[in-house]
Simulated scan of single mutants.
Amino acid sequence: MRRETQNLLLVLLGGALLKIALTGTYLRYVKPALFPWLIGTGVVMVLLAAVAIVRDIRAARARARADDPFAAPPEPHEHEPAEHAAHEHRGRSPWMLLLPVFAIFLVAPPALGADSIGRGQQTAAPERPTGASALFDELPPGPAPELSVSEFITRVVWDGSGALEQRAVRLRGFVVHPADGPARTQLARMRISCCAADASPVLIDLAGPAADALATTPQDSWIEVTGTLRAGSATEANGQVPTFDITGARGIPAPDDPYEY
């Protein structure tokens, strides 16, 4: 690979990292805590490319000042055949590395959604709280406090106080219509530990007349639902997926940060 190609790749890769970090689209791929590392990596790559470009320009000017038309061509690398060195500059394969960079600049892939569920990912199992956190805090005040889907399921499985029984809460997520089994609608979120590569779905079955109205709602549509837990619906047999009897649902914009942690 020619040095010019290397430098261009460094500039574009560093620029792509800075673009997705500064525009907020990095949240489709990694957790917010990695933002400083993306910025630092992008800046370092661009600086390395800038230093290499300046050094190459100075070297080219020095050769031009030498103005020696009878200078011998540079020797091939010690372990590189001369024929390969002669054809190195005509190679096109390094430019294929630019395709994923241009894809990030032009068409940023969306966050994981309904089409990622059921492709081998295991449903995220709620972890049992330990130590002092084993005692859950009281639910927020109000007629229908908002909980994350992960917190709701964790309370369903591990909170034996019965705080969720007959208590209306609000949940936010995207719509999923499972292809297997009877027709039904689920509320889903993707939970990640580090990045989208380790994402696992968190699912809730929606029930009730208001849930029947969601049967025609397109998948990946973001909604907020209000309702109550159906006691005893989350079991080991169904992967600890609770049933939520909803009394209302409304569409909402997709959040800037689509994942839970």
Rank of each mutant, 00 (worst) to 15 (best):
residue 163 A to S: 13
residue 242 P to Y: 11
residue 105 F to E: 05
residue 134 A to H: 08
residue 148 S to T: 15
residue 72 A to W: 10
residue 80 E to I: 13
residue 8 L to Y: 06
residue 176 V to T: 13
residue 238 N to K: 09
residue 60 A to R: 14
residue 252 I to K: 06
residue 168 A to T: 15
residue 186 Q to V: 10
residue 251 G to L: 02
residue 3 R to Q: 12
residue 14 G to S: 07
residue 158 W to S: 00
residue 17 L to S: 05
residue 237 A to S: 07
residue 233 S to K: 07
residue 123 T to W: 02
residue 11 V to Q: 02
residue 84 H to V: 14
residue 230 R to Y: 00
residue 82 A to Q: 09
residue 120 G to F: 03
residue 56 D to C: 07
residue 77 H to R: 14
residue 137 D to C: 01
residue 175 V to M: 03
residue 72 A to K: 15
residue 143 P to N: 10
residue 71 A to T: 11
residue 231 A to E: 11
residue 162 G to S: 09
residue 10 L to F: 13
residue 33 A to M: 12
residue 236 E to P: 09
residue 187 L to H: 03
residue 32 P to K: 08
residue 201 P to K: 05
residue 24 G to E: 06
residue 258 P to H: 01
residue 146 E to S: 15
residue 102 F to P: 00
residue 244 F to W: 04
residue 108 A to Q: 13
residue 32 P to N: 09
residue 131 G to V: 08
residue 185 T to D: 06
residue 222 W to F: 07
residue 249 A to T: 05
residue 124 A to F: 10
residue 54 V to S: 08
residue 252 I to D: 01
residue 200 S to A: 15
residue 61 R to C: 04
residue 220 D to N: 14
residue 121 Q to W: 06
residue 120 G to V: 09
residue 96 M to W: 15
residue 143 P to K: 08
residue 15 G to Q: 03
residue 195 C to P: 00
residue 97 L to I: 02
residue 237 A to R: 13
residue 102 F to M: 13
residue 241 V to S: 02
residue 183 A to Q: 15
residue 163 A to F: 00
residue 50 A to N: 03
residue 122 Q to L: 12
residue 125 A to F: 11
residue 147 L to I: 13
residue 172 R to E: 09
residue 129 P to V: 12
residue 47 L to M: 11
residue 121 Q to C: 01
residue 163 A to N: 07
residue 197 A to D: 04
residue 20 I to K: 00
residue 24 G to W: 01
residue 16 A to I: 08
residue 170 R to K: 15
residue 259 Y to N: 02
residue 116 S to D: 12
residue 218 P to N: 06
residue 97 L to Q: 04
residue 222 W to N: 05
residue 227 G to D: 11
residue 10 L to C: 07
residue 191 R to A: 15
residue 55 R to Q: 12
residue 42 G to P: 05
residue 210 A to M: 13
residue 114 A to C: 09
residue 150 S to N: 12
residue 133 S to E: 15
residue 147 L to V: 08
residue 93 S to M: 10
residue 26 Y to K: 01
residue 104 I to R: 01
residue 64 A to S: 11
residue 216 T to H: 02
residue 44 V to F: 15
residue 202 V to N: 03
residue 199 A to M: 01
residue 78 E to T: 01
residue 79 H to R: 13
residue 231 A to F: 00
residue 239 G to Q: 03
residue 100 P to M: 04
residue 93 S to H: 10
residue 12 L to G: 06
residue 116 S to K: 09
residue 172 R to A: 05
residue 243 T to C: 03
residue 239 G to N: 10
residue 224 E to I: 04
residue 220 D to E: 08
residue 234 A to N: 08
residue 6 Q to L: 14
residue 178 P to C: 06
residue 172 R to H: 08
residue 201 P to D: 03
residue 235 T to G: 03
residue 20 I to F: 05
residue 141 P to N: 01
residue 26 Y to F: 15
residue 146 E to T: 15
residue 164 L to M: 04
residue 63 R to E: 14
residue 63 R to S: 13
residue 77 H to P: 07
residue 102 F to I: 14
residue 6 Q to C: 04
residue 81 P to W: 06
residue 137 D to N: 10
residue 128 R to T: 04
residue 13 L to H: 05
residue 137 D to V: 11
residue 86 A to I: 05
residue 107 V to G: 02
residue 69 P to M: 05
residue 98 L to S: 04
